[in-house]
Design a binder for these strands. Structure first.
Length: 462
DNA sequence: GGAACTCGCCAC
DNA sequence: AAACGTGGCGAGTTCC
């Protein structure tokens, strides 16, 4: 894959972006080293207890007896061999290279109680690894994470030493333990400003699909519409927690995967098994998550005439056909045109003046321009904000970026002014600078209390 | 003894 | 017709 910025404008974006990101690297983020040391000690003890419990089990003793050395519980190869060769179990799932998988989903499916203890240890280890990374990379209690603009195939950024772009957020325990280590300057507070649905918005600039434009312009709930269709909820109401749960499932298990190039087969598995807690075969009334307090998803779906996984898959196949064939027809046509263009010329151009050249799959060719240009919206905003903070002598500083969000270390007295200027840059100045942006952009803010850690982030309503 | 590969899992 | 995009990182394993 050969890459190069095609235009002078693209070159300037990278040049100015590098300078602005270098200032963020230099500013850094504070680490509470006392907390990190204490937590590491505590977690190490906790893990040793769990590990001991696992090693005393019959499962572990059988494993040990089956090979000539002490089992290494960190080794997927050894576990793979014991489960699928020695014990002869049928792998619930295969890895990319076609061997029996030992990931969380597979081990859970095997239904062996001892493996749950093992999974708990692995989860704790994963969390501990973040803290160890902070400890290793910090200098006098400060992290100066690198933000790279030259490594990603789509012209996005990456981050390393340590990677500040993959600190846990969804899992509550992991989020709290890791983010409680990270602090702003004394007397300051952390602020995150993120574009809402940026990639979906930027895709619009390429495909210009009228239905999608209407969804975004009117603020009408696309994911709610899809949840209603997939789970046959005539009375869909996102104020009901159960319906909101299925809406989130739809968004993450159907709409976004379809945008990235996935198909109904994988989506069906994800929605029914992972989210819905329904089995692969025929369904009975008492299976699955609750839908309206008094009935299960299976009971609800059976009532609508779908009484097996197979039927659900067929149902989803029809919905996919409708999704691309009717609902987002122009989006689908752009994908085809764009793919054919790539096959003819051997490259894809981004709306921000960059070009990706080389061998690509269909999904690659479709995804790169959206992913890259979306990040460039963030980068442009980052540069503008950085310049503004410099020229106006703000005490607040930009300290990082996570693809569609900016992270700031803020002086409390500057908070209101900052949210105002960020809103102006991202929603007014940016669409003015790149006039190909054809939908309104929005930013959301999350803010932590003064002298509070990153784990304290809460939605800011303005 | 290090490079390259594999697996698994965190983020967007 | 085919079937999820981009990274970083820990670790085990294999190859040279």
């Amino acid at each position: 894959m050969e890459q190069h910025p095609k235009s002078l404008e693209a070159y300037h974006l990278l040049h100015n972006g590098t300078l602005a990101l270098a200032r963020a690297e230099q500013n850094g983020i504070r680490v509470d080293m006392e907390y990190v040391e204490n937590k590491l000690t505590h977690m190490t003890r906790q893990m040793a207890r769990k590990q001991k419990q696992f090693e005393e089990s019959k499962f572990y003793k059988d494993w040990k007896a089956s090979q000539d050395k002490e089992p290494n519980t960190n080794s997927p190869v050894q576990l793979q061999n014991f489960l699928y060769n020695v014990k002869g179990l049928k792998p619930p799932k295969l890895t990319g290279t076609g061997k029996g998988s030992t990931d969380k989903e597979s081990l859970t499916a095997l239904n062996i109680p001892e493996l749950n203890t093992h999974l708990e240890t692995k989860k704790l280890k994963k969390i501990r690894d973040y803290l160890e990374g902070f400890r290793r990379e910090q200098v006098d209690g400060w992290l100066h994470t690198f933000f790279n603009l030259h490594l990603v195939i789509s012209y996005r950024s990456s981050s390393d030493r340590p990677n500040l772009q993959n600190i846990p957020k969804r899992d509550k325990l992991a989020k709290n333990i890791t983010r409680k280590a990270l602090y702003p300057r004394l007397g300051h507070q952390l602020l995150e400003a993120d574009f809402s649905g940026l990639e979906v918005c930027i895709a619009c600039a390429y495909h210009k699909d009228p239905v999608m434009l209407k969804y975004i312009n009117t603020g009408y709930d696309m994911h709610g519409d899809m949840a209603k269709q997939i789970f046959l909820l005539d009375d869909f109401d996102n104020h009901k927690p159960e319906h909101d749960y299925l809406r989130a499932a739809t968004k993450n298990g159907f709409v976004f995967p379809e945008f990235y190039g996935d198909y109904f087969g994988n989506c069906a598995e994800y929605l029914a098994v992972q989210w819905g807690e329904l089995p692969k075969g025929n369904w009975t009334y008492d299976q699955g998550v609750m839908v309206d307090g008094d009935r299960t998803l299976a009971k609800h779906m059976i009532g609508k005439g779908i009484h097996s996984y197979k039927m659900f898959e067929e149902h989803l196949k029809a919905i996919e056909k409708d999704f691309w064939g009717k609902r987002f027809k122009q989006y689908a046509r752009w994908k085809e045109r764009h793919w054919h263009q790539y096959q003819k010329v051997g490259y894809v151009d981004l709306l921000t003046g960059f070009r990706c050249t080389g061998v690509m799959t269909r999904n690659d060719a479709i995804n790169y321009p959206v992913q890259g240009a979306a990040f460039h919206c963030l980068l442009w905003s980052f540069i503008e904000l950085d310049r503004y903070l410099q020229t106006h002598n703000f005490k607040s500083r930009l300290i990082g970026q996570v693809h569609d969000s900016m992270i700031l270390d803020v002086h409390p007295k500057e908070l209101d002014k900052l949210t105002a200027i960020i809103t102006k840059i991202t929603t007014i100045d940016l669409p003015k600078f790149w006039d190909w942006i054809n939908v309104p952009l929005n930013v959301d803010f999350e803010v932590c209390g003064v002298d509070k850690s990153w784990a304290d982030a809460k939605k800011l309503s303005i």
